[in-house]
Design a binder for these strands. Structure first.
Ligand SMILES: [Mg+2]
Ligand SMILES: [Mg+2]
Length: 1230
RNA sequence: GAGCGCAGCGU
DNA sequence: ATTACTATCGACGCTGCGCTC
């Protein structure tokens, strides 16, 4: 930037000129006026130990970087200890009570300054504050729109009169409870920290260049920084003079200095007996030119690394013979490995390195949650000196007895304390905030973000690595690799530049921003703004800023002290009940749409509402009238003109406009991957985050600016605007709104024409936008197909026009397959089902076939032991608290698994993803849940039926809920589940078959309506014969009776078997009466005389069965082929099977089953006898003659039974109901 | 069916 | 209601599972 000073020290003596002085001379850092250019990174207000009775004033330590006097362009770490603070508080003056004649009291003017001053002075004196400065001031009050029920008649108005009170910080801050008086009603900022006072007073807005006026050298260093200064603040002049400020924010800002980051990876091994982690190895990767504004240039050039590994004699991790030599060799190869004789040596060495390298940033994966704690515990145990070198604040005393409580302390308080002065970027924490993953282990993140497979080594394997020198070095390599991966991960996530931008925008502390204090960022943004506008600032959560909230009459709970606010009862982990209503969600018009559906969405709805309606602390009025309990009493600000803009709208306007500027700058950037472009991208993102999180903080009980009425007003307007938009679309434009959620509507264009749909969308868009000034709705997407399932649950095909035709992609919201609490298998099956449902141009029948086939295949695979890997069955659930803290631990699978893990002395972290597999066995679900490792070790068997019934069926059923022909029962049938659980309005035929026993020789004959009849072809004369069954009378009895007349053979009294050629001239008839029987002809081989030999029958039936199976299975194969190639383009099944399209389409599993059963029945002699009984009963009723079944020749009987056995074998393997449909896919034919 | 609890999607 | 230890977390809307009554 052109307007930037080239260097923060412009005008300073050049380094060479002062080279004669000692390197340590701090004055070298000062410019010609004796001022210090200081890049502020972070600050802390260390708590002071009380030394007897004498109190020291508060100290605030600023940590940062200063230009190195020795080397141009380099920077040294520096701290500035600021002293001489005065506490600032504001006493709001009371109004005089005037007694009326009727005895009532009215409140008049403010009490006089003298009166107030006297009382306040006395009050402070009573609290031990002897040096006080006081002055009447006018201040504004941010919560003037709320009614303070505890202070009837003494409401604070927007502008009011206060006494400003200042006293040295050596005196303690005042307790609100002790501050009661006649002349004042409220006290503000009495507990403000000096750090906050400094930041607000000096307008320090996050990391940036400051000019420190005339700092001095300290008598002794309080920090481990390379150089240190001390600054005593001027005595507070009541009127702050800009020239007298001793800390100034530089304007314009020179370029930020690069920082040094150190990524740490530690291998700790738990002691078998105690479970205490001991440090085995520490690796660090250091990068010196790390840019805090964006990606770093030449990152690799400025990287170095080291590893320290320790010997552990008398344990499994001792150095093998000759390790020293190997180590020396490795060192010569450039591998920076140091050995240490003991853990203590290792830790000391490490601290020394830390001190020399003096990193500004520490990067680690779960650094605060694990690594740092382990290091500290071991340093304490081994009595390693100067543990505080981990951070930069010297001589910290940490009370260890307190922290040995339990491992589940989530605040990492001590760790943060020790790290003071070095910023910590925890890749775990950052990732949980910046990306959504199924879990946040280093390996997973490397895989998904860096596309790198990280080799995992568990502590139990360390001893193996210590068997040989080479493998120890390999472990060192891996550890160093981890450190490098963490560094890359942090860079990839842009965690450091992004939090820096956020901190700059908010004017908060970087260390707090890094540890994810989101609400605090908004607090600081508003604190700065309100401070600058001369408002008294709200303190820690307490009710007096907004005592007696309008809606619920909670009076003066706060005075009782203990009463926890916000209803946060005890150890309640689950989310508490909502305090006010939020967004409007429409009931979707459920179903599958194949017309274009438009998604219109308001840009940043809530921030826009704040601007549109000028909603702010400063613009809202007190409710004019009492409203009944629970009703919202506030009115909208009447004035929404731009000149009366409130603070919040103004800030949002600023954020939005800045973002627009950044985005347009980004647009003009030709190379989107350039450093500049990426910096802009980060800035843009930070601006968006800030704008969007403002609303959330208004409703946050713990926020400094907690203002539920504002939050409530915003959501209320949100609901109104969405409803208004819907009405416009439906009533005025006669459109079909099929769904909407908070800030969006989904409109069915009822058209297959994209341009028509777009036109419609644009019309609606412009109509809506006409209604608003700041609110903007936009077409957020066009779906060529959408399956609306439930509120917040849908699957859609996004239609976009690319340079070469339409580009399709999925949008999947809320459905089970996007959630991590279903096993992978379930998600995969759902995926296939969604693929089918959303595929293009596929008939309803094809969809049904395809999904049924998928399910049958899944069931078959699952029921085949070992076909599905355990990982596919693992169900994942997070531990949201320590296992012990769960109420009924015994009924929750993930908790049970965690408890057992604890029992085995394995660490269990809060937030960890517990994997479990449901196994066969007795008891409740939780008792059948085991971790994958337990399953393997104990040889347990997964409960396949559980998975089919509870993991596959419900999600698929939900997806198919609106698809006719794929009701729950059909899906259950396809999965081979008990269909009785589902209402039997569904497939009655399937139901009928479901109850059928295979051994039953009396099937329901009408069920063979749709089977293909069996045609035999005489092997001798090639005549084709439709095979009626064992006897001719059976011909018309397989399906519903037809009106057709009986043929001669069917009604013949003497029923001869039907296994004979119909051609009278056939040679088969030449041989004896029965034809089929080779009755011992001497001239011809017996077999050749048969029309239908048994071998032929079996082959024919076998072939037919195989054909049907193939026909059935081919549907599946086609789907499978599809999956591998084009996700969205499914070739319809009919394309491949045009000649037999109908057959294929209708060829379901039950059809196949019936076909097989039919074949068997045709040859079933016993069945024939049953059927003749039935037939004779009917004939008797109708007065027809009785049929007499003629005995079968032995050979025919053998043929018949042979075929029956053959078909039965195939049927038995393929139990269609409740057993196993899978062998239908067995393509081998006997 | 209600209650409780758990999970974590959605805006 | 914390910036020294009980942790501390932006809001609300919605579905789905398991257990007990
Ligand atoms: Mg939006
Ligand atoms: Mg939206």
């Amino acid at each position: 930037m052109a307007d930037r000073p080239a260097s923060p020290r412009s005008g300073a003596p050049s380094p060479s000129a002062s080279s004669s002085k000692s390197n340590r001379d701090p004055s070298l850092y000062l410019d010609e006026h004796g001022d210090l250019p200081f890049y502020f990174l972070d600050a802390a207000e260390p708590q002071l130990q009380d030394k007897g009775g004498s109190r020291e004033g508060a100290k605030v330590v600023l940590f940062g970087k200063v230009p190195s006097p020795q080397k141009e362009g380099q920077f040294d770490s520096c701290s500035v200890v600021v002293k001489g603070f005065y506490r600032h508080c504001y006493f709001h003056k009371a109004r005089q009570e005037v007694r009326q004649e009727d005895g009532s009291i009215v409140y008049g003017d403010y009490v006089s300054d003298d009166e107030a001053e006297k009382e306040i002075e006395a009050c402070l004196l009573r609290l031990g504050v002897r040096e006080v400065m006081m002055k009447p001031v006018k201040k504004n009050y941010p919560f003037s729109f709320m009614i303070d029920k505890s202070k009837e008649g003494q409401q604070i108005s927007r502008e009011g009169e206060y006494m400003k009170v200042l006293y040295p910080s050596a005196y303690p801050s005042l307790s609100k409870r002790e501050l009661k008086g006649r002349t004042f009603t409220h006290v503000f900022q009495e507990s403000q920290s000096m750090l906050e006072l400094l930041i607000l007073g000096k307008k320090i807005r996050g990391p940036g260049w400051l000019k420190i006026r005339a700092p001095t050298a300290p008598a002794f260093a309080k920090t481990w920084c390379k150089t240190e200064f001390e600054l005593t603040l001027n005595d507070p002049e009541m009127e702050g003079d800009e020239e007298e400020q001793n800390v100034l924010w530089m304007n314009p800002q020179p370029e930020s200095p690069p920082v040094t980051v150190m990524s740490l990876a530690v291998r700790a091994v738990p002691q078998p007996k105690t479970g205490v982690n001991e440090v085995l190895m520490i690796s660090a990767v250091v990068q010196k030119n790390f840019s805090i504004d964006g990606p770093s240039k030449d990152a690799n050039k400025n990287m170095s690394s080291f590893t320290i590994v320790r010997n552990a004699p008398n344990s499994s991790c001792n150095f093998p013979f000759g390790f020293k030599e190997e180590l020396e060799k490795a060192k010569k190869m450039g591998h920076n490995v140091t050995d240490a004789a003991s853990e203590r040596t290792l830790l000391s060495l490490f601290l020394a390195k830390m001190h020399i390298i003096d990193p500004d940033f520490i990067i680690g994966h779960s650094f605060l949650g694990f690594t740092c704690g382990v290091l500290m515990a071991r340093m304490d145990e081994a009595k390693v000196a100067n543990m505080s070198k981990l951070g930069r604040l010297k001589g910290l005393q940490i009370e260890w007895k307190k922290r040995n409580k339990s491992t589940n302390s989530k605040s990492h308080f001590v760790e943060k304390l020790v790290m003071t002065g070095r910023l910590v970027c925890d890749t775990y924490t950052s990732a949980t905030e910046l990306v959504r993953e199924k879990n946040y282990s280093l390996s997973t993140l490397c895989h998904s973000l860096l596309k790198v497979e990280r080799p995992e080594v568990s502590p139990s394997e360390y001893s193996k690595f210590f068997a040989e020198s080479s493998t120890i070095l390999r472990l060192c390599n891996l550890t160093e690799g981890d450190a490098l991966l963490q560094l890359r991960l942090a860079s990839q996530l842009m965690a450091i530049p992004l939090t820096k931008q956020l901190t700059n925008l908010a004017g908060s502390l970087w260390s707090r921003s890094l540890s994810g204090a989101r609400a605090e960022r908004i607090d600081y943004l508003l604190l700065h703004e309100f401070h600058n506008r001369s408002y008294v600032l709200p303190g820690k959560p307490s009710r007096d800023m907004r005592a007696g909230d309008s809606g619920d009459g909670e009076g003066e709970v706060e005075l009782m002290g203990g009463g926890a606010a916000g209803g946060a009862t005890a150890t309640r982990q689950g989310r508490r009940k909502a305090q006010y209503s939020g967004g409007l969600v429409l009931e979707p018009k459920k179903g599958l749409y194949d017309t274009f559906v438009l998604l219109l969405d308001f840009n940043s709805l809530y921030p826009s509402i704040i601007r549109e309606f000028n909603i702010c602390f400063t613009t809202m009025d007190r409710p004019k009238q009492e409203k009944p309990e629970g009703e919202f009493a506030y009115d909208l600000p009447r004035d929404t003109s731009l000149d009366s803009m409130g603070v919040l709208p103004r800030m949002l306007k600023m954020l939005v406009e800045k973002r627009q500027a950044v985005k347009s700058a980004l647009k003009s950037e030709s190379d989107k991957s350039s450093l500049k472009a990426q910096q802009l991208e980060i800035r843009q993102k930070a601006l968006k985050i800030m704008a969007n999180s403002m609303y959330g903080c208004l409703g946050f009980v713990g926020s400094r600016f907690y203002a539920q009425p504002l939050a409530e007003m915003i959501t209320m307007k949100g609901r109104e605007i969405l409803q208004q938009t819907i009405d416009l679309a439906e009533k005025k434009m006669n459109l079909d709104v099929v769904y909407g959620d908070t800030d969006s509507i989904f409109v069915d264009s009822r058209s297959h024409d994209i341009s028509e749909a777009k036109k419609l969308g644009n019309e609606l868009k412009s109509e809506v936008n006409k209604l608003h000034r700041d609110l903007v709705i936009e077409i957020d997407g066009i779906f060529s197909k959408i399956l609306l399932l439930k509120k917040k649950k849908y699957a859609a095909v996004v239609y976009e026009e690319g340079p070469s035709g339409p580009v399709l992609s999925y949008e999947l919201k809320g459905i089970d397959m996007v959630r991590r609490d279903w096993c992978q298998l379930s998600r995969e099956v759902s995926k296939t089902v969604v693929d089918t449902l959303l595929s293009k141009e596929i008939s309803k029948e094809e969809v049904i076939i395809s999904i049924r086939t998928t399910l049958m295949e899944v069931a078959e695979t699952l029921r085949t032991p070992g076909k599905v890997p355990l990982s596919g069955l693992a169900i994942t659930k997070s531990l949201t608290k320590h296992p012990q803290e769960y109420g009924d631990k015994n009924s929750q699978p993930h908790v049970m698994v965690a408890m057992r893990k604890l029992q085995r002395n394995e660490p269990v972290a809060v937030g960890e993803q517990m994997e479990y597999v449901i196994c066969k066995g007795e008891g409740s679900l939780a008792e059948k849940a085991f971790s994958p490792s337990e399953v393997k070790e104990q040889g347990l068997e997964p409960d396949i039926e559980y998975y089919l019934e509870n993991q596959i069926h419900p999600p698929v059923a939900r997806l198919c809920a609106s698809i006719e022909g794929l009701e729950e029962a059909q899906l259950a049938e396809a999965l081979g589940l008990d269909t009785k659980k589902f209402s039997s309005t569904v497939d009655s035929r399937a139901g009928a078959f479901g109850g059928q026993e295979l051994s039953d020789t009396k099937p329901l004959l009408q069920q063979f309506d749709d089977v293909e009849p069996l045609t035999l072809r005489c092997v001798l004369c090639k005549t084709c014969v439709a095979f009626p069954g064992v006897y001719p009378f059976q011909r018309k009895r397989w399906s519903q009776a037809t009106a057709e007349e009986e043929s001669e053979d069917e009604s013949a009294r003497k029923q001869e078997h039907a296994l004979r050629c119909s051609n009278p001239a056939c040679p088969s008839h030449q041989r004896g009466e029965d034809g089929a029987v080779p009755n011992g002809s001497p001239t011809k081989p017996a077999a050749s005389a048969e029309a239908f030999p048994v071998g032929y029958l079996r082959a024919l039936v076998g072939k037919k069965i195989a054909d049907f199976k193939q026909r059935y299975a081919s549907g599946y194969l086609l789907v499978e082929e599809e999956k591998g190639t084009v996700k969205m383009r499914r070739v319809p099944l009919s394309l491949k099977y045009t000649p037999e399209l109908r057959v294929v389409e209708e060829y379901t599993s039950s059809a196949l089953y019936r076909q097989l059963l039919y074949y068997r029945s045709l040859f079933d002699v016993k069945l024939a006898e049953h059927m003749s009984d039935d037939a004779n009963k009917e004939r008797q009723v109708n007065g027809k003659h009785k049929l007499e079944l003629q005995p079968l020749p032995p050979s025919v009987a053998i043929s018949m039974s042979s075929v029956v056995r053959y078909v039965s074998a195939q049927l038995e393997h393929s139990a269609f109901q409740q057993i196993n449909l899978s062998s239908l896919f067995d393509t081998t034919v006997m």
